[in-house]
């Protein structure tokens, strides 16, 4: 019990990482991809380079690639040569746009559903049918109607963000304590004032939990959506690098997807903490 829990946890974490990296490094034959020798023209034509190229790149290769990429993340040299930062910004931009529209629609609608039992009963069947639909299933319809691949991707993010926010807002609003509503009533607050000054702060932690779930799902979906629509974005980048058989870049971008997802989640988590209250 000498070291505190955080220190001990950090030591274990680093140890696990070290063991995995060493095992990974050791299991990769021949070190870096492509070997030391240049391939002859003939070898290249017959696919001679693919023996070593098809193996998983070593962690050292990924790390050195990461350093190169991250030292200049925002360059843009045409369609198929953009920095990882540029690609991630495209994706984050789309997520935030679709997600933003979803928040604007789902929070007020959730209030209506949470405050009115009639609306709750009337809209519930639609929500239950629409909610389990994979967001990507909307893609063909979106492409046909919107006729723009980028806007379609944003629409897919919008449609997948709506449900967690809507359901959580409705639940949070509906479970505001009767006592607090009675206080608002005895103070003769108007329905709008009650909604803003009593129900909103009371339901805020639940609403933000829904928003946190939604941003997580959006980030999962945008990668798949961009693989479909192509052009720009991290999803397209991963698929493009796969087509180039550049596994180093694929692994690197997988890690970056994880890092950005974590950042998005952390932001929403700290926002949730800000509105959290102890009962």
């Amino acid at each position: 019990m000498l070291a505190n829990v955080n220190v001990r946890a950090a030591i274990v974490s680093i140890a696990i990482l070290a063991v995995l990296l060493i095992a990974w490094e050791a299991s990769v034959p021949g070190g870096a991809i492509g070997g030391d020798e240049e391939l002859s023209e003939y070898e290249m034509l017959t696919g001679g380079g693919s023996t070593s190229g098809s193996s998983i790149p070593a962690p050292s290769a990924v790390i050195s690639h990461a350093i190169t990429e991250l030292s200049d993340p925002f360059y843009d040299r045409g369609t198929n040569d953009k920095g990882i930062g540029t690609q991630l910004l495209y994706s984050v931009g789309r997520v935030l746009t679709g997600y933003g529209f979803a928040v604007l629609l789902a929070v007020p609608l959730g209030f209506v559903i949470g405050m009115s039992p009639v609306m709750q009963k009337a809209l519930n069947p639609y929500i239950q049918v629409l909610r389990p639909i994979s967001p990507l299933a909307w893609m063909p319809l979106a492409l046909f109607i919107i006729q723009d691949s980028i806007k379609s991707a944003i629409f897919v993010i919008f449609i997948c963000s709506i449900w967690p926010i809507l359901v959580n807002t409705a639940f949070g609003v509906a479970s505001v304590k009767k006592d607090l509503l009675n206080v608002a009533k005895t103070l003769e607050l108007s329905p709008l004032k009650t909604a803003i000054t009593v129900i909103l702060p009371a339901a805020a932690p639940t609403i933000l939990t829904g928003m946190r779930i939604a941003v997580g799902i959006s980030w999962l979906v945008i990668v798949a959506a961009e693989m479909l629509v192509g052009g720009t974005g991290i999803g397209y980048y991963v698929w493009n690098e796969w087509n180039n058989l550049d596994l180093t870049s694929v692994i690197f971008s997988i890690l970056m997807i994880g890092v950005v997802g974590m950042i998005l989640d952390t932001l929403l988590a700290s926002a949730t903490r800000m509105v959290q209250y102890a009962d």
Partner: peptide, 18 residues
């Protein structure tokens, strides 16, 4: 209906916790 002329103190304080 309710009115500000009639104040109520509830059994469980009913304060806004935030």
């Amino acid at each position: 209906g309710t009115s500000l002329d009639r104040g109520v103190i509830f059994q469980n304080h009913s304060l806004l916790p935030w």
